[in-house]
Amino acid sequence: MKPKEKAANYKPAEDREKDLRLALLRIQKGRAKTGETKVTIAAVAREASVSKALIHNYYPSIAEAIRQVQGRSSRAMRDVKHQDLLAERKKSAGYRHEIEELRAKVSNLASINEVLLEDNRVLKAKLDDLKVVQLASKKPQG
Rank of each mutant, 00 (worst) to 15 (best):
E17N: 00
R121W: 07
D128M: 11
K18D: 05
S92Q: 14
Y58Q: 08
A136W: 13
T34Y: 13
G35A: 01
E114L: 09
A42M: 14
S61L: 04
P140T: 09
L85K: 15
D119M: 12
I27N: 08
I62H: 04
A8Q: 14
K6R: 11
K138Y: 15
E5M: 14
R78I: 02
K91N: 12
K38L: 12
I41C: 02
R67K: 14
D79E: 14
G71A: 02
N108K: 15
V115D: 04
E17T: 00
L25T: 10
L24V: 05
P12A: 10
I112H: 06
Q83T: 11
N108F: 14
V80P: 00
R72C: 15
V115I: 04
Y10T: 02
A63N: 01
T34F: 09
K11M: 10
Y58I: 04
A104H: 05
K52F: 03
Q83D: 14
P140A: 09
K33T: 07
Q83R: 09
L20G: 06
A65S: 15
S61A: 11
L109R: 14
N9C: 01
K6C: 05
V132F: 06
A42L: 15
E100K: 13
A65W: 03
S73N: 07
S92G: 12
L25Y: 09
Y10D: 01
K11F: 14
T37E: 13
D84I: 11
P140H: 07
L127W: 02
I62Y: 02
R26Q: 11
A7L: 07
I55G: 10
K29S: 07
V132M: 04
L22R: 06
K81V: 04
L85H: 11
D129M: 01
Y58L: 13
R67M: 12
E98S: 04
Q134Y: 05
L127H: 03
V69L: 03
P3T: 06
V44R: 03
V39Q: 03
V115H: 04
G71C: 07
Q83P: 05
A93S: 12
L135T: 12
L123K: 09
P3R: 11
A110S: 01
L135V: 13
V122C: 10
A76F: 12
S92C: 14
L123Y: 07
I66A: 01
E64K: 02
D15E: 02
D79R: 12
K29L: 10
L54V: 05
G30Y: 14
A93M: 10
G142W: 09
K131Y: 00
D15P: 00
E36I: 01
L22G: 00
V50Y: 01
Y10N: 01
H56F: 07
H97I: 05
L130Q: 02
N9D: 00
Q134G: 04
V69H: 02
E101V: 03
E101A: 05
A48M: 05
S111E: 10
A32P: 11
P12C: 06
M77N: 05
L85V: 14
A7S: 06
S92I: 10
A42P: 12
E88H: 15
D19S: 08
E100N: 12
E100Q: 12
R75N: 10
A42N: 15
L102Q: 07
R21E: 08
E17K: 01
S61M: 04
K81H: 09
E114K: 13
E17W: 00
P3H: 08
R89V: 15
Y59G: 08
A43G: 06
K52E: 13
L117I: 03
D19A: 06
Q134I: 11
A136S: 15
M77K: 09
